[in-house]
């Protein structure tokens, strides 16, 4: 049952994934004029151009280039950086964990703040506290990540000196220092996400608490706390989880700018620097990894949803 569902979902995903790779591949084809000029600049010699052309495989037909590129990625070969000559796969191996750590920490923070706040607001619907929380959430969603990060640096790093504004260290070298450097970036993304989670939780809770089984639970004397958490919240977790899963793309987009502010050497910074240096294999590798990560998370969310909720599985 579940295996069949998994297979069906994956087979639906495959064409999308292929088109994604094709779109990313098209980046090099779409370069205006001669791609070697775009990459090397106007005053590169013919010899330099020829070397690059060969390196990129531009002397071959586009379809062959695409298949070779795709095959390479499937076997872990993402090409080499035009700037440093480093294999892109090695660069990715260093940078993916940083972005993933930032994403996971932000998500945890968003859930820890968002769900209790949502429940709190929903159980006091229409009260001043509810209005206050909703207002705070709406404001928090209007603050762009980069400004939120800057404000946090100004307050906690520059003025109070409590936390560093940069200075990333890998977790396995200095776990404490690593987490310290991750606090402000995670708050930057986490609070904005928390607002979304809160709104979703509140909406779902308001709907659930109106239902008959909640009344029944109350009528048979279940403690109010238990009604809210064991009966109410439990039924809200599915839609809330789905929304969190679907927001992963926004979250990673936020990670790109946040990494720039806090000088975290993650995927986002790699892509942005790659754009400045016109280092296409690096940009392409980074984008493919991010999009595949998003697709994977969406797939997992989708499956989790179907497994958790029998109504979906049966339909």
């Amino acid at each position: 049952m579940t295996a069949r569902l998994l297979l069906r979902r994956i087979s639906q995903l495959l064409p999308t994934a292929l088109i994604v790779t094709f779109l990313v591949f098209m980046m090099t084809l779409a370069l205006p004029g001669d791609p070697t000029t775009a990459i090397l600049g106007e005053d590169a010699s013919a010899e330099q151009r020829e070397i690059l052309r060969e390196k990129l495989g531009l002397d071959r037909p586009a379809a062959v280039q695409y298949v070779v590129w795709l095959g390479g990625m499937a076997t872990g070969d993402f090409g080499t950086s035009l700037k440093t000559g480093e294999p892109v796969a090695d660069m990715l191996a260093l940078r993916v964990p940083i972005t993933v750590e930032l994403t996971v920490l932000s998500m945890v923070l968003a859930v820890l703040i968002g769900i209790p706040a949502g429940v709190f607001a929903a159980t006091r619907r229409g009260s001043l506290a509810d209005l206050g929380i909703s207002f705070l959430a709406m404001s928090s969603m209007a603050v762009p990540y980069f400004w939120a990060g800057m404000l946090l640096i100004m307050l906690f790093a520059v003025k109070l000196g409590w936390l560093p504004s940069s200075g990333y260290v890998p977790f396995h070298i200095d776990p404490f220092g690593n987490l310290r450097a991750m606090i402000l970036p995670s708050i930057t993304i986490g609070t904005a996400m928390a607002a979304l989670v809160m709104r979703q939780t509140r909406a779902a809770m308001c709907e659930t608490m109106e239902q008959d089984f909640i009344r029944t639970a109350r009528a048979k004397g279940v403690r109010p706390r238990s009604v809210v958490y064991r009966h109410g919240l439990r039924n809200c977790l599915i839609p809330v989880t789905t929304v969190i899963g679907l927001q992963i793309g926004t979250l990673i987009g936020g990670a790109v700018v946040t990494e720039t502010i806090f000088s975290l050497p993650g995927l986002g910074r790699m892509i942005v620097n790659g754009i400045f240096w016109r280092d296409f294999p690096v940009v392409q590798g980074g984008i493919v990894v991010i999009v595949f990560f998003v697709l994977l998370v969406n797939l997992v969310t989708d499956l989790a949803y179907s497994i958790l909720d029998p109504r979906v599985r049966l339909s």
Partner: peptide, 9 residues
């Protein structure tokens, strides 16, 4: 496929 890309990316 296009929607799978995060907007900023």
């Amino acid at each position: 496929a296009i929607l799978a890309f995060p907007m900023l990316i």
